[in-house]
């Protein structure tokens, strides 16, 4: 009896402790965002001063305009490149994977098992390590210092193919049967019935693909050496590793490259969480 009550007492006491721990951790996790924004609006003197300022008394918005007017940084063009690259990669890679996943799940052709095995085999190859082989192929096709050279290898995601295949295997065949009665062929069934029902999957995997593409570093570094092909990450990295240290400018650069994704993250959070859960657990 007394054991029961102490246990209950413990449980009740644990609740506010848990809340407190969670609250503190939340502050720790969000602190870097606050620091980034604060630093981007300060001047060098304030940043290097040993006296702590919570928020700049005068906001130095000039840090942002200087970022875009500095001709050596190419920040404007780099942001445009990133937007174009991620904006093409996300929808195209997801659609290609969906179409291939449907074909592998539904269309009965001899040798489908072999094709599936060939797709699965490419899953074994770790992504970043093979930048040399990919560079060799993209280089021979003339893709060095071009945006398509950065985009092309990222359009073919075997893992997404498998996720879509699993999805379409579980798709109720009665609906397709009805479509067939209406005179649809395989392509029509995909285009008119399967694809429109895959909205959530397309959004989830598309959002994840956009994030990966926007934040990619090694491959754009390998292929896009010329400033005309820089992505936002490459421009920021060049700024960070350059000899002139301009602290407020660096933080302004970080804000500019991080903000688009944070905004997208907040808008599409539901799909992103779903995407992580599906892709992680089936993998």
């Amino acid at each position: 009896m007394s054991g029961m009550t102490t246990r209950q007492a413990l449980r009740i006491a644990r609740r506010p402790v848990r809340g407190l721990v969670a609250g503190l951790l939340m502050v720790v996790f969000l602190t870097p965002f606050y620091l980034m924004l604060r630093n981007a609006l300060m001047d060098t003197k304030g940043l290097t001063s040993p006296h702590w300022t919570w928020w700049p008394s005068t906001m130095h918005w000039g840090n942002f305009t200087a970022l875009f007017s500095d001709p050596t940084l190419h920040m404007g063009q780099a942001l445009g490149n990133s937007l174009l690259i991620a904006g093409i990669t996300a929808p195209v890679s997801t659609l290609l994977a969906s179409a291939a996943g449907y074909a592998l799940a539904r269309i009965p052709v001899p040798g489908r098992g072999v094709v599936l095995a060939l797709v699965v085999a490419t899953l074994m190859i770790p992504g970043s390590v093979t930048f040399v082989p990919t560079f060799v192929v993209v280089g021979s096709l003339g893709g060095i210092n071009t945006l398509w050279g950065i985009i092309a290898p990222g359009l073919f995601n075997p893992f997404a193919v498998l996720l879509f295949r699993n999805f379409y295997l579980q798709f109720p065949s009665e609906i397709e049967e009805a479509g067939r009665l209406d005179g649809l062929g395989w392509f029509g069934l995909y285009r008119r019935i399967a694809l429109p029902s895959s909205g959530a999957m397309l959004a989830s995997l598309g959002a994840l693909s956009f994030i990966d593409s926007w934040n990619a570093f090694l491959w754009p570094l390998v292929v896009g050496q010329d400033p005309s092909a820089w992505t936002a990450q490459i421009a920021l990295s060049t700024f960070l590793t350059s000899q002139t240290i301009n602290l407020p400018g660096l933080f302004a650069g970080a804000v500019v490259t991080v903000t688009p994704l944070v905004v997208m993250f907040l808008i599409a959070q539901r799909y992103i969480v779903e995407g992580i859960a599906t892709s992680g657990l089936k993998g």
Binding site: L25, M26, F29, L30, P32, F33, L35, M36, I211, W214, N215, F217, Q233, L236, S237, L240, L250, F251, G253, A254, T257, V258, L261, V262, M264, F265, L266, Q269, I272, V273
Partner: peptide, 15 residues
Amino acid sequence: FLIPAAVSYVAASLL
């Protein structure tokens, strides 16, 4: 807890 996943390694390295 999830939102740092939106930040690139480059920006995080900078911070």
